[in-house]
Simulated scan of single mutants.
Amino acid sequence: MPRIEPATERLIGRPRLLRLLADVEGDHRRANDLFAWNVAAAGAAMEAVHVFELILRNALDRELRVWNANMNGDPDWLLTPHEFLHKSLRPADRAAALQRARRIAAERGRPVRHDDVLAQLSLGTWRYLLPSRSVKAKQRLWDAALSHAFPAWPGDWGPESVVTRVASAHELRNRVAHLEPLQHLDLRRVRRDMRSVCHAIGPDAARFFVQAERLIPIIETNPIA
């Protein structure tokens, strides 16, 4: 790990510094190494989540385009969603994405497109569009459309398996976004969860994910592993 300016209380805050020191028995040099590792791990984690989200998003979008076209004749489910989608898609997610997409499209001097809105959705949107025992509409949407996005999943998988694994990736994304330390998180498990979902989408998706991310080398250099 490259040497950096010492991670002092003034730079990273007293609580974070004390937490690092607690993990390395008060050794300031090792605490600095651990901080540098966290920076590298956060970068690698976001790279992996980035690739994972693109694969998942496009797989689900493909099926929703087909389903929406069959239901109301228009594949652009984010612009003209069938009424059934209103029971599954969080209204605030679509509204915020649509607002941002319209602004960007206007700046480019053209009407908003389906893909403009799609690009503005977050990983959380996809997580909460997946089946939920408390929302029957989501289960019906899964049965009719979203389950087809995972044609290569193993026979003993159920929808809860996909939900759990996507949630794992979403939680990693949130930890990194909120600058939370990663040294005690089981990054191997989260990476395995993302790879498994990609494999369920297709072996090519799993290969693409593995080839495009670099978590394993970072995981193996965790100073307190």
Rank of each mutant, 00 (worst) to 15 (best):
G155I: 05
A167F: 09
P111V: 00
T164I: 03
A69T: 02
A105D: 02
A31Q: 02
E5R: 15
I218P: 01
V135S: 12
F52R: 12
H114I: 10
A97Q: 06
H28F: 03
P151I: 03
A7G: 04
T8I: 12
H199I: 01
F208Q: 09
P151Y: 13
D156P: 01
P217F: 06
S147H: 11
V135D: 13
R62E: 13
N72C: 05
L185K: 10
A22K: 06
E9W: 09
A152G: 08
R14K: 06
P81L: 06
P81W: 05
P154C: 11
R14S: 08
A7C: 10
R19G: 04
A41T: 03
I219F: 12
F208G: 02
R10N: 08
I219W: 03
M71I: 05
R102P: 02
S122N: 08
E180A: 06
F35G: 00
A41Q: 08
R195D: 00
A40R: 14
P151G: 12
P159A: 07
R3Q: 05
V197C: 09
H178S: 12
L172E: 00
E180I: 00
S196G: 07
V39Q: 09
R29G: 04
D33P: 07
V176K: 08
S168Q: 03
K87A: 15
R103W: 15
V163L: 13
A137T: 12
A200G: 14
A45F: 04
D186F: 15
S122A: 11
R103T: 08
E83Q: 15
F150C: 06
L89S: 03
A45L: 02
R110P: 03
S196N: 11
L146W: 08
A106V: 02
Y128K: 13
D74K: 02
V166P: 13
H86C: 07
V210Y: 12
H28L: 01
W153D: 00
A44D: 07
D143T: 11
D204S: 08
R108E: 13
P223H: 06
T80L: 05
A167E: 13
E220Q: 08
G124N: 14
V117H: 10
